[in-house]
Write a protein that binds this DNA or RNA. Structure first.
Lengths: 138, 138
DNA sequence: GATGCAGTTGCAAACTTATGGCAATAAGGG
DNA sequence: CCCTTATTGCCATAAGTTTGCAACTGCATC
């Protein structure tokens, strides 16, 4: 099991969640992905190993992981993307064409600190997205 | 007509767009709203005055406004929210309960400058959203 | 190792948001 | 006032996500 998956399981064990096959597969797939995956992506990757796992289960599992703070959800035009909560990141989404890119967020802390100075955030930030016009659409 | 709506119409006039009733209503509703509205919100508010305006038209109009750089789109869990492009803002969205708040963004420029230092943004930022856990869900 | 409960899952159907086709309408120039 | 064409309304449809319910399985207990 990868480090990333191990970290997720640690949390799940803490809260007494069952170690089911479906959860193991979803976590494994998320841990193996460098970026974010949609529910359909996750389902597709799991299907190559175990086709009987239902898409509904993927939705329920990801929701569960997000609810437990193990994963996070990123709204995307047309679908939601999921990722494990172990590396800070910033996404840039173009208002016009929907193009998206992940920004290397080595200094995300600085950004969040700056954002925090704008006022009470009202939340513990885990991720960030920027909206605007990409170079092609300017 | 409000200032905000006037600004939008100025842009529309520049590009030679027709001053239709549906567009006027969508812009008026967006201009009157302090925050962001979903297509359904806009449609509902218009309906109280002019029920014959179709939801499809609201979608097409908002897409048009976003495409022209007059409005912007914010992905939200389950739906897209629209707002006019006349005041910089930062949104905070809770991963878990979906609670959202608009952060007074007097210093958004500083945040964006900081974000830009994280790497090539690949876009001209107009808005920003933060994802994480709100106080109630921590 | 067998048993029982509660948490999970699979399947099918329903819901919601959003889009596309096409005919009817209306804005704005002539 | 007429004409052209952008725009709209209505319908059908797509895609993503959720829900209801019966069946199943992890895990604690016996």
């Amino acid at each position: 099991m990868s480090d990333r998956a191990g970290h997720a399981w640690q949390r799940l064990t803490e809260i007494g969640a069952r170690r089911t096959q479906a959860r193991a597969l979803v976590i494994e797939v998320l841990a193996a992905a460098p970026g974010h995956l949609s529910a359909a992506d996750i389902h597709r990757r799991i299907a190559s190993v175990r086709p009987e796992v239902n898409l509904t289960t993927v939705y329920r599992t990801t929701s569960f992981l997000v609810g437990q703070g193990i994963a996070h959800l990123l709204e995307w035009p047309g679908e939601a993307m999921y990722g494990l909560n172990d590396h800070p990141h910033v996404h840039a989404v173009c208002d016009r064409c929907g193009a998206h890119s992940e920004i290397p967020a080595a200094r995300l802390d600085g950004v969040l600190a700056e954002a925090r100075r704008c006022g009470d955030l009202g939340l513990q930030p885990a991720g960030m997205a920027l909206f605007g016009r990409c170079h092609d659409c300017t």
